[in-house]
Write a protein that binds this DNA or RNA. Structure first.
Length: 544
RNA sequence: GCGCCCGUAGCUCAACUGGAUAGAGCAACGGCCUUCUAAGCCGUAGGUUACAGGUUCGACUCCUGUCGGGCGUACCA
């Protein structure tokens, strides 16, 4: 519908004395006030400046020159300072409703990104411990944005970037070694800054079972490190799977060392005089890109800082032919992002091909109080523990219900509540309720011909249909802005329109034609709810 | 100090990327179950959108400053 409105407005505008550049983008929006129609455009107001005319008279002229299909548009009005308001024809609504039924599980899919290949990198936690609540928001955001993009036609790969070398992992190996020795009754202490979590003991225990005392003499921590990595990765993947997330690709940071691309990056920078040596280290002239200071790429020890492999890794992604690469990370990593973009630009890539979703931190609220977490100390809540308490559906929902770029408060008590305070149940309940009706209808009726949807003229029916057919637009907007919470707000609105309909209009016991038409309407609603919940990665139960 | 993000009803948050009278949920108050799931529906109350300026037909949204909170500001990741 938006596209249609844009096209008829454009046709009208072409009759004005305006160059192409002077025609602004035509915005179509849904007015807050129902009296203002179903869709509205502010085009006349936007043109007031360039045309030097009263916006109302511009609007009048546009409407005069506009031709529209009465089967789609019932009325066009000019209101307020110069808005053009459109009212949909009933016939249009019925056609669209039929469209929902016809498209079924695919209703909402569009082709706007058809042919695009997108790589979205998320989670990317190093295998040093179980996923915590902090990773949860990252994981769920990344996966859901991926699903949204897929619904708009893109081909999306989900990638997990990790590092199994370096200090962190050494520390992990040493921690496991210490626990291993303790398990066998020896005196051993965790290294300073070692990992204190209980899971380290589990890994040590597994090593004892497997090797007995055979690893006591070795000073090499490789065996400890590898076992830890293996077990932790298994656990991480199990956690992700439980959350309905499946990564397509894993990328080991080591690759960009091994294939020499790190050196290539440094050399390319040097050739363009964007890298230099100072104090035994290699520096990147980030000051050329508007940063206060230059940045170290290779430490005086010869070891690269994380920025260098980061740049090489992103170049690698672009080289793999993706049209767009999206990174998901927390606010604490925001500072590295400009360096990566500068690096890519220096290498001759188009920086707009890399995009980032930054989310703010999660505060867990337990017993009414914020719960402070520290990763290395055993003081954290794992995602698994959270899911044990509230289940995967609620977990996903809570991480998605707020805009990524705002601080999220996760109230465990509210999440555990079954209803009332818990909005996820509202959606699932509406879906289950419809299926309950559908089951009853199926028992009592056997409809022959196609339903006559044109008898759905009750105000609640009308509103429900209008809400339903906005679904594809909502997916677009949520995908475009990378903000899944928009879809949640929409589904909430849809469910609320359904429950209003449910209370105003009975299905069972009415005239058979009406039963049939309303059943179709209910079925379409359930379909949209199921499709939407599917995008969110949340189950749509048929019974509750 | 500097940089990024946030500040909206008592609480948690929306507001379609600058639009018309700022909306939901929870909490409070008042109604609605012999009929398809009351995990629900309807209504009442609750606001100087932190504050002060500015930009324009129009600002929660953009700009400047102030206050408050979060995160950064490494030859850690």
């Amino acid at each position: 519908m938006k596209d249609y409105l844009r096209s008829i407005i454009t046709t009208a505008l072409n009759q004005f004395d305006l160059s192409k550049e002077e025609i602004p983008e035509i915005q179509i929006e849904k007015p807050n006030q129902p009296e203002h129609g179903d869709s509205a455009s502010n085009i006349a107001l936007n043109l007031a400046g360039t045309l030097k005319m009263n916006p109302r008279s511009i609007a009048e002229e546009i409407v005069e020159k506009m031709e529209y299909d009465p089967r789609k548009i019932d009325a066009v009005e000019i209101a307020g300072p110069g808005f053009i308001n459109f009212r949909y024809a009933e016939n249009y609504l019925f056609e669209e409703l039929q469209g929902v039924l016809d498209q079924g599980a695919r209703f909402g899919e569009t082709e706007t990104r058809a042919g695009q290949r997108i790589l979205i990198e998320f989670v990317s936690a190093n295998p040093t411990g179980p996923l915590t609540v902090g990773h949860g928001r990252n994981a769920v955001l990344g996966d859901t944005v991926a699903r949204l993009l897929e619904w708009t036609g893109a081909e999306v790969d989900r990638e997990y970037y990790f590092n199994n070398a370096g200090r962190q992992m050494r520390m992990l190996g040493q921690s496991v070694q210490a626990r291993y020795r303790q398990e066998l009754g020896q005196d051993a202490e965790l290294p300073e800054d070692g990992y204190e979590g209980e899971y380290i003991r589990d890994i040590a225990h597994a090593l004892v079972e497997e090797h007995g005392e055979a690893l006591l003499d070795t000073s090499d921590i490789t065996a400890f490190k590898e076992k830890a990595e293996q077990l932790i990765f298994e656990e991480i993947q199990a956690t992700l799977q439980r959350m309905n997330i499946k990564m397509d690709l894993f990328f080991n940071e080591q690759e960009v060392y091994d294939d020499g691309s790190i050196d290539q990056v440094v050399n390319a920078f040097r050739e363009k005089d964007l890298a230099y040596d100072k104090d035994g280290a290699t520096w990147f002239r980030t000051s050329r890109f508007g940063k206060e200071k230059d940045t170290v790429l290779v430490k005086s020890t010869g070891e690269p800082t994380y920025r260098l492999p980061d740049i090489a890794y992103h170049a690698n992604k672009l080289e793999r032919g993706y049209d767009q690469c999206i990174d998901v990370f927390g606010a604490d990593h925001i500072d590295t992002y400009p360096d990566v973009l500068s690096g890519l630009e220096a290498l001759g890539y188009d920086r707009s091909r890399v995009d980032v979703i930054v989310y703010q931190f999660v505060t867990i609220v337990k017993e009414g109080k914020p719960f402070k977490m520290s990763t290395r100390k055993a003081n954290f809540i794992t995602l698994d523990e959270l899911m044990d308490e509230v289940g995967p559906d609620v977990t996903r929902f809570f991480f998605l219900m707020r805009a990524p770029n705002t601080h999220l408060e996760f109230d465990v008590a509210a999440a555990k509540e079954e209803g009332e305070k818990n909005p996820v149940f509202y959606l699932q309940y509406a879906h289950a309720r419809i299926h309950s009706i559908l089951r009853k209808v199926k028992q009592e009726y056997a409809f022959g011909e196609a339903p006559d949807l044109t008898i759905l003229t009750h105000e609640s029916e009308n509103k429900l249909i209008k809400s339903m057919i906005r679904f594809p637009e909502m997916i677009q907007s949520a995908a475009e802005s990378r903000e899944p919470h928009r879809l949640i707000n929409y589904l909430d609105d849809l469910a609320s329109h359904f429950t209003s309909f449910y209370h105003d209009c009975r299905i069972l016991g009415e005239d058979e034609k009406l039963v049939q038409a309303r059943t179709a309407l209910a079925k379409a609603t359930a379909q949209v709810l199921a499709n939407g919940l599917g995008i969110l990665g949340i189950s749509a139960p048929e019974q509750m």
